[in-house]
Simulated scan of single mutants.
Amino acid sequence: MATDTPETIDAAVLAFCATVAPGVPQYVEVVPGEAARVAYCFDNAAAAVARGGGEVAHGWAIWRWAGRYFEAEHHGIWRRPDGTLIDVTPMFYGQTRTLFLSDPQAVFDPARFRANILGAEAGNAVAEEYVALARERAAILNAYGEPGVAHAITPEDQARLDAITPRWVELYAALERGEGMLQGA
């Protein structure tokens, strides 16, 4: 697993979050709801609201691959009637808490896909190049609709992807080897 819930809310986490939305992230306990499914956070949160009241809290799950990069994923959790936040979506890797950045402006709309937001760890040139290429790839692919849904891609865009992908894969492998990391990260 590359990205995970950040261990602490340090200055680097706060700096990344400031590029995503105003506010301060907070840890939220993961307590999977009845019949909740991995990756269906908005449906899971809506089901929790239907069962127990409250509302869906919209925002971003914050992930970190320490020393490499951050990722913000559009996310919804349950705000119970007493105001307590609970992440009712089971995590793919079994995390027991989520770092959640509230963003009331990021309301879920099934007709509007919100791409993940990446940011390189400061001082990691390999991660900076990787993130730049990942953003470029995402801009091309996201123009075709929701990820995972088959769409015909134009030959021009396929050529752009073909030009980017080898270097992107090479950089990912370098990140796996720990290249570009600052000492102590």
Rank of each mutant, 00 (worst) to 15 (best):
R68G: 01
R68T: 01
R68M: 11
R68Q: 04
Y69H: 00
Y69V: 01
Y69E: 05
Y69Q: 07
F70Q: 04
E71L: 12
E71K: 06
A72E: 12
A72G: 07
A72P: 04
A72L: 07
E73G: 05
E73W: 02
E73P: 02
H74D: 13
H75G: 06
H75D: 14
G76H: 03
G76P: 05
G76A: 11
I77K: 05
I77H: 06
I77E: 05
W78K: 00
W78N: 00
W78S: 00
W78V: 00
R79S: 06
R79Y: 09
R79I: 09
R80S: 02
P81G: 10
D82Y: 09
D82E: 06
D82G: 12
D82R: 01
D82A: 13
D82I: 12
G83E: 12
G83C: 15
T84D: 10
T84P: 03
T84F: 14
L85V: 07
L85F: 12
L85K: 04
L85Y: 11
I86K: 00
D87A: 13
D87R: 11
D87C: 08
D87T: 08
V88D: 03
V88T: 13
V88M: 08
V88Q: 02
T89H: 12
T89S: 15
T89K: 04
T89A: 09
P90Q: 06
P90Y: 09
P90R: 04
M91P: 13
M91L: 14
F92P: 15
F92L: 08
F92E: 15
Y93A: 10
Y93W: 11
Y93M: 11
G94M: 09
Q95D: 10
Q95F: 09
Q95K: 15
Q95A: 04
T96R: 15
R97N: 12
R97H: 15
T98H: 05
T98L: 11
T98A: 14
L99K: 00
L99Y: 01
L99H: 11
F100T: 03
F100H: 04
L101M: 06
L101A: 01
L101V: 09
S102T: 06
S102D: 00
S102I: 02
D103E: 07
D103V: 03
P104N: 13
P104W: 05
P104R: 13
Q105V: 09
Q105E: 15
A106T: 02
V107S: 01
V107L: 08
V107N: 06
F108K: 03
F108N: 07
D109E: 14
D109W: 14
D109M: 07
P110L: 04
P110I: 01
P110Q: 04
A111T: 11
R112F: 13
R112E: 07
F113N: 05
F113W: 10
F113E: 08
R114S: 10
A115E: 11
A115D: 05
A115K: 01
A115Q: 08
N116K: 13
N116F: 05
I117T: 14
I117Y: 14
I117R: 04
L118M: 12
L118H: 04
A120C: 04
A120P: 07
A120L: 06
E121A: 03
E121D: 09
A122K: 07
A122R: 07
A122H: 05
A122N: 10
G123R: 09
G123P: 09
G123I: 03
G123F: 15
N124A: 01
N124M: 00
N124G: 01
A125H: 13
A125L: 14
A125M: 15
V126S: 07
V126A: 13
